Computed example of a mutant assay.
Amino acid sequence: MTHTLSLPIPTSVGSIDQYIQFANRIPLLTEQEEKTYAHRLHDDGDVEAARALVLSHLRLVVAIARGYLGYGLPHADLIQEGNLGLMKAVKRFDPRRGVRLVSFAIHWIKAEIHEYILKNARLVKVATTKAQRKLFFNLRSLKKDRNALSPDDVSAVAAQLGVKPEEVVEMETRLGGQDVPLDGGRDDDDEHFAPIAYLRDPAAEPSELLANAEQAQLQSDGLVNAMAALDERSRHIISARWLTGDDGKAATLHELADEYGVSAERIRQIEAKALKQMRGELAALA
């Protein structure tokens, strides 16, 4: 006879640390207990059995989610998405297959977290293919240290993951970006200045607002003129790279390289030259 998990799911907790403590206090199931609960769910649709299976594996979600903290998303959100994957795994788990739930659930938990990161991470959404997703989630572990990849390392990673070297370089650049906290944390040091300390008041005086509006109009007109001064290829590259469409996606260097039949480095050079020309046009309005 199996024991019944008596711990309720808390409706609210004071902190993520308290939730983690709660998850770690829930007893693990033995293999026989797990099979019994799984059969009750699979054969009879027993909701309490499903609850027991989910609760006993919350600590697994916590552990997996901790491995994705480097993507700039809150640990609590990662755990929540992982819990959704766990519930999907429990629903689909068949005890007759002879595997433990933990082995079966890992795939579903990671898949749900991966999908959440791709949709919500601060990074520009470049992982659009299966190979790029694999690159996105494996590049950190493949790097030997925090230094930039050497050309040989880039080639090795590209070959291992089945992507282009240009994609490895671009992904490494984007993964290397860091967010700047607005409030800088709770630091009482007088020499510590976070952005919140020096951001200007949005309620500026009317004369300054008018001057800013006029300047913005001049820059907008200047941008149109600067774009018009570019050749057709440069204009298309700048538009594709900087002026995203309704889907919110900007073209990557390798995508434009494939379109024009040149290297990604050549596209970068054309982009840099066009931006320099446009800055010259806009500087005249300053």
Rank of each mutant, 00 (worst) to 15 (best):
S103Q: 13
I113T: 15
M87S: 08
G72C: 05
R100H: 09
L73E: 01
P74H: 02
I113H: 05
A111E: 12
L123V: 12
V102Q: 12
H114W: 10
D77T: 09
E112K: 12
D94T: 05
G67D: 06
I113E: 11
G82E: 01
V102K: 10
L73N: 01
S103G: 15
K119R: 15
N120L: 01
L86E: 00
R96M: 09
R100M: 13
L78C: 06
R97M: 09
R100C: 06
E112S: 15
G67E: 08
V102D: 13
I117H: 03
G67Y: 01
V102A: 15
G67Q: 13
G85D: 09
G67I: 04
G82Q: 04
H107V: 15
G72Q: 08
N83V: 12
G85E: 05
G70A: 14
F104M: 09
G70I: 03
A76C: 01
R66L: 08
E112R: 15
L69Y: 01
V90F: 04
I106E: 13
L123E: 12
K88N: 10
G82M: 03
F93S: 02
Y68H: 07
S103R: 14
A89H: 03
A89N: 02
R122M: 11
G82I: 03
G82H: 02
N120Y: 14
S103L: 11
A105G: 09
R66C: 02
A121K: 10
P95S: 09
I106R: 12
Y68W: 02
L86Q: 04
Y68N: 03
L78Y: 04
G85H: 01
S103I: 08
S103H: 15
Y116K: 10
R100I: 10
I113W: 02
I106L: 06
I79K: 03
G67M: 03
W108R: 14
P74G: 02
G98Y: 04
G85V: 03
I117Q: 05
R92Q: 13
L78D: 04
L101M: 06
Y116N: 11
A89S: 06
P95Y: 06
K91E: 13
M87D: 06
G98S: 08
G98D: 12
K119Y: 11
I79H: 03
H75R: 13
H75P: 00
K119W: 09
G82Y: 00
L101P: 02
K88L: 07
E81R: 05
Y68S: 02
A121M: 07
H107S: 12
R92S: 13
R66S: 14
H75I: 02
V102M: 08
Y71D: 00
